[in-house]
Amino acid sequence: MTPPREDDLPPELLAAYADGELPPDLAERVARWLAADPEALRMGDEQAGLSPTNEFLMDELAVPMPTPREWAACQAGIRGELAKPRRDYWGVVYVAAGLAVAGVLATVWLGALNHRFAPLALVLPTEESDEEMLVLASPGDVEILSMHEEASSLLLVGDVPWDEDVVLAKAHELEYIGVGSDADGRFPAVPTDPTADDAPLLWAPAPP
């Protein structure tokens, strides 16, 4: 049986060899390779020169360490930050998004009783982004009915906790499928051009 050729070893192993990270059997193969191949030896020396095993290099590259006073300030900063009560912004967002969705569903359900429909969510380009967003509602459309006590401290009384529209998804995250009219013609077909300014995507009942 032919033993494996040492010069078939990948050169990346020279890094691990220089750092002493190879298992003994593989390290022995690399050592034989280095003994037989001057080019591999040159590359191996380059790797060893920039390895933490090069004590002279590590002495030369020692970084200027902070003073005790600077360490104390850093430690005090950490303690101070960790002592602050954390604000769970995502919790507020989840609660608000849940309320908005619940509001949409309630509106759909109520409106269905009246068989009257109006566009609620539109695909609109936003000013800050080139991507179209599926806007679910504007802040004025949302009324907060209840909120977890921990999140309530973040709000001014009666204010919605954001200034932007509630965005359900980016346009490219959606798959547009045709929606035809129902038997009474109350559902117009959904346009397949999501960039149209007034392209209705979701329809909800209008208030009575």
Binding site: P11, E12, L13, L14, A15, A16, D19, E21, E46, Q47, G49, L50, S51
Partner: peptide, 8 residues
């Protein structure tokens, strides 16, 4: 290993 080799 690869990143270290090429970085060096």
């Amino acid at each position: 290993m690869s990143r270290l080799f090429y970085a060096r």
